[in-house]
């Protein structure tokens, strides 16, 4: 049982790293908390659902389609909202409220157009077989999700450290003002980074059926809160740190479910508060942020 819990926790945790990473990227670049993050995950899930049921498109192919869709969506959202927001007195706080409004609008539009039903892409999409590690059997869909998550993390890493745009993104994350002075087109790079954040959220949504059950319009809020916990556990503003946060979350949940099930959803919050208070920079972060 112990072994099974550890292995399941790692796979589940990598998936939750994927759930949180987009939120963290956007926070890192824009210093704004995307309260609609969970709703973009929901949009990804609904996109995958419709592609699958209308055209029989496999979720793996849905990734490519969602990249295109959310790239444009992200750039549009960025230019509509962010430049105006940045001129205000307190963009950090006001963005909180703005994205909350956005999340309400997204949820409402989905309900008005598709209704409130739960929807699923069947887990049999990837076959009914199971695979085993060290004598523990897991559904094959878990293996696929794990591989996708790892590939996404590699892609994000490659973007940050091996592309021009990635360098610029990191420069903005270090200091927006200095980047402006050094001639980086901050708005263009940020808009692109914002899109990537949404794309990452949508990919998490595409695979949500296999890890967190059916999708429904109001699933977003809960996912946003969990994503918060994860990115704080890792390191706020450091996307790669999210992987650590996700792993801790996944393992913690699985262990709690095994040994103390009724308390299992308390744990992430207690962890979050403890880390905030005693190691506010996150487990692998560097800069201390306290007032």
């Amino acid at each position: 049982m112990f072994e099974y819990t550890v292995l399941a926790g790692i796979m589940y945790g990598l998936y939750f790293g994927l759930v949180g990473i987009g939120l963290n990227l956007i926070f890192g670049v824009m210093r704004m908390i995307n309260l609609a993050h969970g709703d973009f995950i929901m949009l990804g899930a609904f996109l995958a659902y419709w592609l699958f049921h209308l055209f029989g498109i496999n979720p793996l192919i849905a990734i490519a389609i969602s990249c295109v869709v959310f790239l444009f969506l992200g750039i549009a959202f960025y230019y509509i909202f962010v430049p105006r927001l940045l001129q205000s007195k307190d963009p950090e706080m006001l963005s909180f409220i703005l994205f909350f409004g956005l999340s309400q609008v997204i949820e409402a539009i989905i309900i008005l157009s598709f209704g409130n039903n739960q929807r699923s892409v069947p887990s049999s999409t990837f076959g009914h077989s199971t695979f085993s590690i060290l004598g523990n059997r897991f559904p094959i869909s878990w293996l696929i999700v794990t591989i996708v998550a790892i590939l996404v993390f590699i892609a994000v890493y490659w973007y940050f450290y091996h592309t021009k745009l990635g360098y610029a993104t990191r420069a903005i994350m270090a200091s927006r003002d200095e980047s402006l002075v050094s001639g980086i087109n901050v708005n263009r790079v940020s808009a692109f980074a914002f899109s990537i954040g949404l794309i990452l959220a949508s990919i998490a949504g595409i695979f949500s059926f296999f890890m967190i059950g059916a999708a429904y319009p109001s699933m977003g809020t809960n996912l946003t809160v969990i994503s918060f916990a994860i990115i704080v556990l890792g390191a706020l503003g450091n996307p790669m740190g999210t992987i650590i946060g996700g792993l801790i979350y996944g393992l913690a949940i699985m262990f709690m479910q095994t040994y103390l099930s009724s308390w299992s959803n308390l744990l992430p919050y207690l962890l979050l508060i403890a880390i905030m208070l005693f190691k506010p920079e996150g487990l692998i972060g560097k800069t201390v942020r306290s007032a």
Partner: peptide, 9 residues
């Protein structure tokens, strides 16, 4: 929303 580990327990 995930009962995998619970089912094994």
């Amino acid at each position: 929303s995930n009962y995998a580990v619970l089912l094994h327990s």
